[in-house]
Simulated assay, not measured.
Amino acid sequence: MSEHKEQIAKQLMEAFFYARRREHRMYSREGKRKPGEIMVLYAIRSRTEKGEPGIMVSEISEKLDVTSPTVTQHINSLEAQGYVERQADAADRRIVRIRLTEEGEKYIQAVNDARLRMFLELVEHLGEEQSVQFAESLQKASDYMFKEFMKRHSSSPHEEGES
């Protein structure tokens, strides 16, 4: 690989990590939820907005690819804040399902509204043409990173003994 391409790759990598760090800071300000909590809220909402009676911790864990104890910590925190509730399954009382409360629904809607405002302002900042180009480039990058690259490199560095 040429030194020039390596420098560009490092610039892309830093831009991705910079954006991610900024997003995390945005959620931690002003008492907002942790990024993991928001992901759990969205996982719950994705299931319950389809009319299902709730989602089990194991299903959230699988959907987000995190451990059940991690999901349980987030659920406990969100329940204490009044955003989610646990309910016994009607068909099998041994199963506990998680649902958003009315406050949880309102919170997710507020997050969606804030995100839309942020991206509308980004369109104003970049302009329509550059915004479309950015969106197309980001989609292409995402497709490559999560489809093509992962196909070719199916084992993670940790599996190969690297750190």
Rank of each mutant, 00 (worst) to 15 (best):
H74G: 08
L78G: 11
K106Q: 09
S77E: 14
E85Q: 14
N76P: 03
Q109W: 00
R86N: 07
E102M: 06
A91L: 12
N112K: 05
I108C: 05
T101F: 05
R93E: 15
R86S: 05
E85S: 09
N112R: 03
I75L: 13
Y107P: 01
Y107I: 01
R86P: 02
N112P: 00
I75R: 07
R99I: 10
H74E: 08
R99P: 06
N112C: 00
H74A: 13
I108P: 00
L78E: 06
E85G: 08
R94Q: 12
G82I: 04
Y83W: 06
T101V: 04
V111C: 05
Y83G: 01
Q87C: 10
A91T: 10
L78N: 08
A88H: 14
L100T: 11
T101S: 07
R93P: 14
D92N: 15
D92V: 12
E79D: 11
E85I: 04
D89P: 08
R99T: 11
I98K: 04
D92F: 10
L100V: 04
I95K: 15
D92Y: 10
Q87G: 09
L100Q: 03
S77Y: 11
A80G: 10
T101W: 07
A90P: 14
Y83E: 06
A90Y: 13
S77M: 12
Y107C: 00
A110Y: 00
A88S: 15
R97S: 04
A88I: 09
E85Y: 09
V96P: 03
H74K: 12
T101E: 07
E79H: 11
V111K: 00
E102V: 10
G104S: 05
N76A: 11
R97N: 13
R99Q: 10
I108S: 01
I75G: 02
L100Y: 01
D92L: 08
Y83M: 14
I75F: 02
I75H: 04
K106G: 01
E102Y: 04
T101Q: 09
N76L: 10
A90R: 15
I108L: 10
A91Q: 14
L78Y: 08
Q87W: 09
E79K: 15
E85C: 05
A91Y: 15
N76H: 13
Q109S: 03
I75Q: 03
